[in-house]
Design a protein around this nucleic acid. Structure first.
Lengths: 251, 251
DNA sequence: CTTGATGTTGCACGAGTGTGCACGATACCA
DNA sequence: TGGTATCGTGCACACTCGTGCAACATCAAG
């Protein structure tokens, strides 16, 4: 069994049972607990599950009440989010997808911004319900429990009815040749659909995402017109990205 | 059971009952009281509960949106919600709309229930994301900020793609001649659309909703096949409703 | 085919974490 | 004030974790 298959199976088991134990997984897949621990560690670093002593839990509790944990409230990520929020001009329409970066973007929207926000994340929608002046369009579909966003054919179809000025895309991997990638198959399809319906796609990438590749490819790096990175991002990599025709913004 | 899960279960029990006792928790989870005391101490240090001699109390009477206080009214509502949840047979599909009654219904779903839940409420969707075995279908549309549910033409169209076994409808008015009503125009339309797509519509009505009429009419009382009320509901009113052909269930 | 680089896996070891028990201190209640 | 339940602390034990290292498979280049 391939490593990626095993990881996928771990996520499936987690979605099915609501919890996984390192010991049980090791028996089920016929590998040592060390290997399982390694898998869990890597999946946790991609934000696909929450590591706890003895096993792992779904990542949901972190985002459900939309309370951001301190470890993701890094100053750099907030600067990226603010930079992105500043791009939206009153009257425009912007798509925001799920994930921690998007959560910060929502918090960074000015209170007096009159704009329309499209999202497939119930958490983002709930958070924006308190915003005084933005209109919120919720994309429906099958709820994907790993990342708590709507996915599937119904979601793709809902997206096809939208035209937006901006799409702010969260990713887990930005690589000059491997392109934009994410740790989740379903989400990759949704991100492609969003990108196709926005005049300009903006990738928000903290430094840990740069020069990294996750299992599921969203598309070439040129799928984005702009990428917002931290100000100390690697110069050589940024040069390559700019050569490909993508505008690099340092926050 | 993992430590993290036990702590979460303690917080759930606290939200449900308004208090927890160290001794009871120790029996319930099959661990020593020492372990429970340690858990309570750590949860208290995180500010998630208030430690008292013998157990713990909620940190403040003002609770999170989905955690209702255990006053007399909500105890009755909980019985109604549990009665409704018990109607769902594994494998069936049920529609749950927004509102506090629906929030209680979500909490009352058995953890091992394998069913499909359709909802236009991001809050319900987010809450159900933590449920281990239900499939969640989110209805998209324009977000109505007043009640935080998806409404409008897109929502109506999304509903038209669904066929459900049950629709659990929350209302603010049940009246023998004025019918079923709610305080919101957009929501009335959505509720009509849901009712049209369900084999059986079940109205959940606490006593304060009975013999009352709200501004916007959803439809005749016969739009519902069943109505779940508190066990001390007015006999004469219930008789009228039953005469109209609606089954009355007392919880 | 050989060689070296790369990636995956299992094992060993020390560190870290969770749990239950014992004991003395403390808080509640009559 | 005395009795009882609860609490905090120290400690032992078992389990889990992270790290370093070696074995092995894969693959590309020579």
């Amino acid at each position: 069994m391939l490593t990626t298959q095993r990881k996928k199976a771990i996520l499936d088991a987690l979605a099915r049972d609501g919890q996984v134990l390192a010991g049980e997984l090791s028996v089920e897949f016929g590998v040592s607990e060390d290997t399982i621990r390694r898998d869990l560690r890597e999946l946790a670093s991609e934000g696909l599950l929450q590591r706890v002593h003895g096993g792992a839990l779904p990542v949901s509790p972190a985002l459900a009440p939309f309370e951001l944990r301190r470890d993701i409230e890094s100053a750099a990520k907030q600067r990226i989010a603010r930079q992105a929020a500043a791009m939206i001009v009153p009257g425009q329409t912007a798509i925001i997808d799920g994930g921690t970066t998007s959560a910060l973007l929502v918090k960074a929207l000015p209170a007096d911004l009159r704009a329309t926000i499209v999202t497939h994340s119930p958490s983002v929608a709930t958070a924006l319900a308190e915003h005084p002046s933005v209109e919120v369009i919720l994309i429906g579909g099958r709820l994907y429990k790993h990342s708590i966003v709507a996915v599937g054919a119904a979601a793709i179809e809902g997206i096809s009815r939208i035209h937006a000025d901006w799409y702010f895309m969260g990713v887990t991997g930005v690589h000059p040749t491997a392109g934009l990638s994410t740790g989740d198959f379903e989400e990759a399809a949704i991100k492609r659909a969003f990108a196709a319906r926005a005049a300009e796609t903006v990738v928000l990438a903290s430094s840990s995402k740069l020069n990294a590749a996750s299992p599921f490819v969203i598309g070439e790096i040129t799928l984005a017109q702009t990428i917002v990175v931290e100000k100390d991002a690697d110069r050589e990599l940024m040069r390559q990205i700019e050569t490909a025709g993508v505008t690099v913004v340092r926050a």
